[in-house]
Computed example of a mutant assay.
Amino acid sequence: MDGKAVRGSRTGDRTAITPLAAMAHTGEVLAQRQVADKSNEIPAFAPFTFIIGEFPSVC
């Protein structure tokens, strides 16, 4: 799991877009979603729990 702010996505009236990605050990992105403004990555992690069951060899 990794979340990073997208460079150049912040404007004068909008905060930066922060996607959270679930990745395999090989670097492939398995799933991705945007983290809500004024939040952090922890609450956004819950929808990714399906990955543990769907891809046991990657986790």
Rank of each mutant, 00 (worst) to 15 (best):
D2S: 05
D2C: 09
D2P: 08
D2R: 07
G3I: 05
G3E: 12
G3P: 08
K4G: 09
K4E: 00
A5Y: 07
V6Y: 07
G8N: 01
S9W: 05
S9M: 06
T11K: 09
T11P: 02
G12P: 00
R14I: 03
R14M: 06
R14N: 10
A16Y: 02
A16C: 03
I17V: 06
I17N: 06
I17P: 00
T18H: 13
T18E: 12
P19Q: 02
P19Y: 06
L20M: 13
A21S: 14
M23H: 10
M23R: 11
A24Q: 13
A24P: 11
E28K: 15
E28N: 14
E28V: 15
L30F: 15
A31L: 00
Q32K: 12
Q32G: 13
R33K: 14
R33W: 02
Q34D: 01
A36E: 09
A36S: 08
D37W: 00
D37N: 03
K38R: 13
K38L: 02
K38C: 03
K38Q: 14
S39C: 02
N40A: 02
N40I: 09
E41T: 08
P43F: 01
P43Q: 12
F45A: 15
F45H: 07
F48E: 11
F48K: 12
T49P: 01
F50K: 11
I51F: 10
